[in-house]
Lab assay of single mutants.
Amino acid sequence: MAEQVALSRTQVCGILREELFQGDAFHQSDTHIFIIMGASGDLAKKKIYPTIWWLFRDGLLPENTFIVGYARSRLTVADIRKQSEPFFKATPEEKLKLEDFFARNSYVAGQYDDAASYQRLNSHMNALHLGSQANRLFYLALPPTVYEAVTKNIHESCMSQIGWNRIIVEKPFGRDLQSSDRLSNHISSLFREDQIYRIDHYLGKEMVQNLMVLRFANRIFGPIWNRDNIACVILTFKEPFGTEGRGGYFDEFGIIRDVMQNHLLQMLCLVAMEKPASTNSDDVRDEKVKVLKCISEVQANNVVLGQYVGNPDGEGEATKGYLDDPTVPRGSTTATFAAVVLYVENERWDGVPFILRCGKALNERKAEVRLQFHDVAGDIFHQQCKRNELVIRVQPNEAVYTKMMTKKPGMFFNPEESELDLTYGNRYKNVKLPDAYERLILDVFCGSQMHFVRSDELREAWRIFTPLLHQIELEKPKPIPYIYGSRGPTEADELMKRVGFQYEGTYKWVNP
C-alpha cells in the first residue's frame, strides 16, 4: 500500500466541504435556525453545542446559521458558553472563530407547556436576519415526558411559513410498544414523516454505516452471507464503567431499553437485511423493517440478565456495585447486563442465532459485530482449526478484520490463527472521521433520513421486546451478580454456547 501524504486539518475539512456542497440537498446560502429545546441540560452542553461548534469551526454548516437555545432556566448566552465550552476542545488559535460562533447564538427562556412562551420564541426567531423565511431545525434534547406539549406548541407557534421545518427526537422513544405508539401517533398528527428525525446516534458511527458497503459492494461476501456458512452472529456493546452516581436515570430504563432495543437491534438489521433497491432512505429502511418483521418476540429462556457488584480487589469506582450508587433505588432489580438470542425467521437466516450482548462495568470498552462461520467440513488438521470470524469493530479503534487459519512457519503443516486486517487509523491517516452527532446533524440539514429511525421500524423493535420488558417488570427477577471489570455473568457464556457459538479464547485482536 502506497504511503499517504499527511494533510493538514484545513485540507481534510476542505475535502469534506467539497463532498457536502456538491450535493443538491445542502442549501449552503439559505438562512437556517437550529433550535435546541432543553438548552440547559446535560445532553445540550456535552453533545449538541459542542457538535454545532465543530461543524461551524470546520465550515460545514450553511453560511447563515443561527443557534437558539430554549429552556425553562433563566440563562444568558454567557451562561450557555460557560457550561458548554469546556466540552468544545477549542484551541487558543480558534479564539476569534469561537467569538464568531457565540455571536450567532441567542437564548430564550420559557415554559414547555405555555403557548405564550412559544409565541415569544417565534418572535425572537423572526427578528433574526431573514428569520421569518429561514429553515428551522428543532432538536428535542428533553425528557420524553414533555415531548407531547413541546411538539404541539412548536407546531402551533414556531413553524417557518416559507422555509422547511424538521424536528429531531432523542431516544428513548417511549418505554414499550404502547407508549411508543402513543408518542408516534401524537407526533405524526403534527408533522409529516419526512419532517421527523428520530435519532439513534449509533447509526451515525462510521463502521455501522460501513456495514452496507461491506455487504453490498464486495462480491466475495454475497455468496457466504447466509445460514449455510454463518453459524452465529454476535452483536456486542461493552462499557468498562458503571453508573457513577447517575444511576437514578438509568434505573428508569435499564440496559435493554438503553442499548439493546435500539443500538444493537439497528446493527442487527444492517447485518441481516436484503440488498435495498438503492441507497435512498426509504429503500434502506424498507429492508430493515422486513428483517424486524421476521423476528419473533424474545423468549425468556433465551435471556440472561445481570447486575454488577463491587470488586473487592478493585480501586475507586470498581469497588462499588450498582446498588451502592446513592441515586439507585434500594434493592433495585434493574439489569445492567443483558444477553438475548433472537432468530430472523426467513430463508437466508433460518436457524442462525443472533446474540445481542450489552452491559456496564465490564472488562473493556468495545462495540462490534462478529460473524462466526461454520467449521470446515472434512477436517484434515486433527481438530487444530478454529472457526473463521469476520469482525466489524465499531469502537474504539474502528477496524474490519477476518480471523482465519494460516500455516505456522516451519517444517510442518501446523495451522495457527491469524488475521486479515483493515484498521482505519492506519489505512486512512488523512481522513477526519466525523463524530456520530456531527454526521447525523449534517444529515438533518441535508434532509437525508437514511440513518434515522422510521415509525414502522420503531414499532417493530418495541413489538419484539415489550413482552419481555413487561414480564421483567411484573416478576422482578433478581439479576445474576457479576463482578465489576469482569466479562459479565458466566451464564451468558453458557447461553451463547448452547445456541452454537464457540468461544476459543486463544486469539485476541490487537490494534496495530
Rank of each mutant, 00 (worst) to 15 (best):
Q178Y: 07
L190G: 05
K95H: 09
A134T: 11
Y249N: 00
K89G: 12
L140V: 09
F191Q: 04
V12I: 15
G131W: 07
S40L: 02
R9W: 13
K82R: 10
A6N: 15
S160Y: 09
T151P: 05
L211R: 01
A115I: 14
E19K: 14
H129V: 10
I255N: 03
P92W: 10
L98T: 05
S73E: 06
Q209S: 08
I48C: 04
V208P: 05
N105Q: 14
S180E: 05
R17I: 08
I220E: 01
A39G: 04
N122K: 10
I167E: 00
A231C: 07
I162Q: 13
D113I: 11
G242I: 04
Q119L: 14
N105W: 09
R17K: 10
D42C: 04
L20I: 10
T31M: 13
G14T: 07
F250L: 03
D251C: 05
P144A: 11
R182G: 15
Q133I: 13
P50G: 08
L43M: 03
I168Q: 04
G110Y: 06
S184G: 12
I255G: 04
N226K: 08
F216H: 07
L183S: 09
V213Y: 12
I224L: 11
F26V: 14
R198V: 06
T243V: 15
R136W: 08
Q111H: 12
A44T: 08
M212G: 04
A90V: 12
P172I: 00
E85Y: 08
T10Y: 08
E206P: 11
F173H: 03
S189G: 14
R81M: 15
P92R: 08
P62D: 07
E148L: 11
D30M: 08
A25W: 12
K82D: 13
I224Y: 03
T10G: 04
A115P: 12
D228N: 10
F88K: 05
C232L: 13
N210I: 02
K95D: 05
K45W: 05
E99R: 12
N122P: 01
G174M: 05
S189C: 15
G41C: 04
T10Q: 09
I167L: 11
D24A: 06
V233K: 02
Q133G: 06
E18G: 11
N105D: 00
G204H: 02
D79E: 15
I168L: 15
N185A: 12
E156C: 11
H186C: 11
T91Q: 13
F221V: 11
G242W: 01
I199S: 02
S179Q: 05
A39Y: 04
R182Y: 14
T31I: 07
A109T: 09
R17F: 14
D251F: 00
L214N: 03
A116S: 15
G247N: 07
A217D: 03
V208E: 01
P172C: 03
R166C: 02
V213E: 06
P62A: 10
G245Y: 07
N229C: 06
R175Q: 09
L214E: 04
D176A: 03
S157K: 12
R182H: 08
N210L: 04
Q22L: 07
T151S: 09
P86H: 10
D79Y: 06
A44K: 01
S189Y: 07
K45Y: 04
K205S: 03
W164M: 07
S84P: 00
S8C: 04
Y249G: 00
D228K: 05
P62Q: 07
R166Y: 03
F56Q: 03
R215F: 01
D194H: 14
E244W: 09
D42A: 10
D176Q: 01
L98Q: 12
L7S: 15
S117Y: 12
L211A: 03
L20Y: 14
R246G: 02
T76M: 09
A25R: 14
H27I: 07
I256Q: 08
S188D: 10
V233C: 07
L7N: 15
L20A: 15
I67P: 02
L183V: 08
D251H: 08
I234P: 03
N122W: 14
V213W: 05
R198E: 03
M207T: 04
L75I: 13
F221P: 03
Y107M: 06
I224P: 05
R136K: 05
D58M: 06
L214Q: 11
Q178H: 11
A78G: 12
N210M: 04
D194Q: 15
P223M: 06
G110V: 01
F138V: 09
I35C: 05
F237E: 04
D228Y: 09
A90I: 07
I187N: 03
K47H: 09
C232S: 12
G23E: 14
S132Y: 14
G254E: 03
H32A: 05
Y249K: 00
G204A: 03
Y147K: 00
E63M: 08
R215E: 04
G59W: 02
V150I: 11
G14A: 15
W164Y: 15
Y139R: 00
T91P: 09
F66M: 10
D228P: 05
A2T: 15
G247S: 03
L20R: 14
A141N: 00
Y197V: 02
A141P: 00
N135D: 10
V146P: 06
R215T: 00
S106A: 08
Y107W: 11
F138I: 08
L55C: 10
N218T: 05
A109L: 06
K47L: 02
K152H: 11
H186T: 07
F221G: 02
A116W: 13
R246N: 01
H186Q: 13
S188N: 11
H124I: 15
D114N: 08
N210A: 09
M125V: 14
R246K: 01
S106L: 07
N122S: 10
N64M: 06
N153K: 13
I199W: 05
I199P: 03
E93D: 10
S123N: 15
I48W: 03
V68R: 02
C158H: 08
R192W: 13
R74H: 13
Y147Q: 03
R9D: 13
E206C: 09
D228R: 09
S180N: 06
A134M: 11
G222S: 15
L7F: 14
A25Y: 15
N165S: 12
E206K: 04
G174C: 06
P144C: 04
F34S: 07
G38F: 02
L137A: 09
I255D: 01
I15N: 09
H129F: 13
V169H: 06
Y70W: 12
P223R: 05
W225F: 06
E170W: 00
W53T: 03
E94Q: 12
A103M: 12
G110M: 03
A217F: 05
R9H: 11
I224T: 10
A25G: 09
R166K: 10
G163A: 13
Y118E: 01
F173D: 03
V213K: 05
I230V: 13
D176W: 04
G69F: 00
E63T: 08
M159R: 14
E18H: 15
F237K: 03
Y49H: 03
P240T: 10
I52L: 14
S117Q: 05
P144V: 00
L43N: 02
S117H: 05
E252T: 11
A103P: 05
I154Y: 01
K238D: 01
I67V: 13
N218I: 00
N126I: 11
L137T: 09
I167C: 13
F250I: 03
R166D: 00
K205P: 00
V169T: 07
Y139D: 05
H201I: 01
E19Q: 14
A71W: 00
F221I: 14
D228M: 10
D113G: 11
Y249W: 02
E156K: 13
E244G: 10
I168V: 12
H129Q: 08
A44L: 00
P92H: 12
L142N: 03
W53S: 03
A115N: 05
E19Y: 12
K82N: 14
F56T: 04
Q111V: 13
R74S: 12
D194V: 08
Q11G: 14
W53C: 01
L61H: 01
L130R: 07
P86K: 06
L183G: 00
L142Y: 00
D58Y: 08
A127S: 12
D228T: 07
A39P: 05
N135F: 07
Y139P: 01
R175H: 14
G163E: 06
S123P: 03
L190Y: 06
L55P: 03
S123A: 14
S40R: 03
A90K: 09
L130D: 10
R166V: 03
L43I: 03
K82C: 10
A217I: 05
A71S: 09
K89C: 13
Y49I: 06
S180W: 04
R192V: 12
R81V: 08
R72Y: 00
T76V: 05
I196H: 04
F56S: 04
